[in-house]
Design a protein around this nucleic acid. Structure first.
Length: 425
RNA sequence: GUGGAAUUAGCUCAGUUGGUUAGAGCGCUAGUUUGUGGCACUAGAGGUCGUGGGUUCGAUCCCCAUAUUCCACCCCA
């Protein structure tokens, strides 16, 4: 094989595209119902934007970005996620002066240079959204409810919501101090990574998988128990709002989002069908991000959903996604004259909005029927010299074999026959 | 970045203890079948056995390297 896709990328083929289109359509529809509008941002940005916005200590920025210098000497990176670009756009276009909250959703590809495995690719797709300007927990719950509604509308039943609060800079500084105090006596026995984390980001020690560190983490003081009064009130507000909406959740003090900008609310939707990459969707609040990126002090919250992981989950839960046929009618022709007539009729029906096909392979009449059967087209019309002479033919419902007489000179009658008999499917 | 497994037709997979011309099922094209498809039967097309080296009289098979895929670690969507 001479050419194949680059590692970690893949083609999405016509035979599976309907699942993607369905998800895109439902996501857009649900977001729209909440007052979110679509935004489209560039695939690449200045590298600096991601170093600032995502955080230059994160793995994503440190070792996973596709970074290159363009011909003008600029350092450019393919986006590893969507939030940084959206925040840039929000600031750049003065969206603080729009009526608040400013709410946008997006459907993007993102790029991370990682080793490939189940549910993890180098180019992948995210549905995401951001809501700017609302400070209270109501918006947190509303954003989460978008996801539960989306999942429900897609027919997913088993996704599980986990929430946590990672506090604000104030309580986190205090909590880091408490954590270091807790870990200090046992530090010598911990793994190499955790020794580094102890200095830089003790929060990360909590989800270390090393058996010894894991045991220690189990009894570590919880950030949730050390939130400052404001953060505590916000978190209680969130759980109250979720309860009001009847959205079930688990409080998981172990959720520590890997991107630097999160504050207070963080959440995930997880599944156990996607291998170890069980996180279908992750998000949270980022109250300091807009200001840090050079805008005004505007709070924000958002999430990103891995579309590949989501679709794997759809598959694993055995959810059927219906496909509506684009082509309604196949016109089979028995002679050259009939074929000419068939092509003209097909063009005319398409102009009227009815999808149809006719032979392009020079096939025998019988082969045309076989083809029609294989493509699953719902209706068939046969044209021979007799039909053209009499201007009468029949439309056959391929499912039940029932044929309906039609008049070839009466196009609206043909269309009506197709549409009416559709009701009987 | 680290470790394990795999790679033979479009797809799913056999196979050769190293030996002429590498197989099956499905799919594809056509025929049986100018007057109604899915079934059946028949025929055909389709492979540098992932790629590059090495050992050998001879390699799809053994050895080395490399790429890709899958799984796991790390981290994330």
């Amino acid at each position: 094989m001479k050419y194949s896709v680059p590692k970690g990328t893949k083609d999405i083929l016509p035979e599976e595209i309907y699942r993607w289109q369905k998800a895109e359509q439902v996501f857009a529809e649900v977001c729209g119902q909440y007052g979110f509008r679509e935004i489209r941002i560039p695939t690449f940005e200045h590298t600096e934007l991601f170093m600032r916005g995502v955080g230059d200590t994160t793995d994503v920025v440190q070792k996973e970005m596709y970074t290159f210098e363009d011909k003008g000497g600029r350092s450019i990176s393919l986006r590893p996620e969507g939030t940084a670009g959206v925040v840039r756009s929000f600031i750049e276009h003065g969206m603080t002066s729009l009526p608040s909250p400013v709410r946008v959703y997006y459907n993007i590809t993102a790029f991370r240079y990682e080793n490939v495995q189940k549910g993890r690719f180098r180019e992948f797709h995210q549905f995401g959204l951001e809501a700017f300007g609302a400070k209270g927990p109501a918006v947190d719950a509303e954003v989460i409810s978008i996801l539960t509604l989306f999942f429900a509308r897609m027919g997913l039943t088993q996704t599980h919501l986990c929430i946590n609060s990672i506090g604000c800079p104030v309580c986190r500084t205090e909590y880091n101090r408490i954590l270091r105090e807790y870990y200090q006596p046992g530090l010598a026995g911990m793994c190499h990574d955790c020794k580094g984390r102890y200095e830089k980001n003790p929060l990360r020690m909590l989800d270390c998988k090393e058996p010894h560190c894991h045991t220690l983490a189990a009894d570590a003081p919880k950030l949730l128990d050390h939130l400052c009064p404001d953060c505590r009130e916000h978190f209680e507000g969130l759980t109250a709002n979720l309860d009001d909406l009847g959205i079930p959740y688990t409080i998981d003090p172990g959720i520590v989002r890997g991107l630097d900008y999160y504050t207070r609310t963080v959440f995930e939707f997880v599944s156990d069908h996607v291998g170890t990459q069980g996180t279908i969707c992750g998000g949270g609040r980022y109250d300091g991000l807009v200001e840090m990126m050079g805008g005004q002090s505007v709070p924000g919250i958002g999430f990103a959903m891995g579309v590949e992981r989501f679709l794997m989950e759809v598959e694993a839960q055995g959810v059927a996604i219906e496909r509506t046929p684009d082509v309604h009618l196949y016109i089979a022709a028995m002679s050259t004259e009939a074929a000419v007539f068939a092509r003209k009729l097909a063009f005319s029906l398409r102009k009227a909005g009815v999808g149809c096909e006719t032979d392009l392979m020079g096939r025998s009449f019988n082969a045309q029927l076989k083809y029609a059967g294989k493509t699953g087209v719902p209706y068939l019309m046969v044209l021979g010299d007799d039909e053209i002479a009499s201007q009468k033919s029949r439309i056959k419902n391929m499912k039940d074999g029932v044929q309906t007489e039609i008049d070839l000179s009466n196009q609206s009658g043909i269309i009506a026959t197709i549409l009416n008999s559709k009701l009987h499917d």
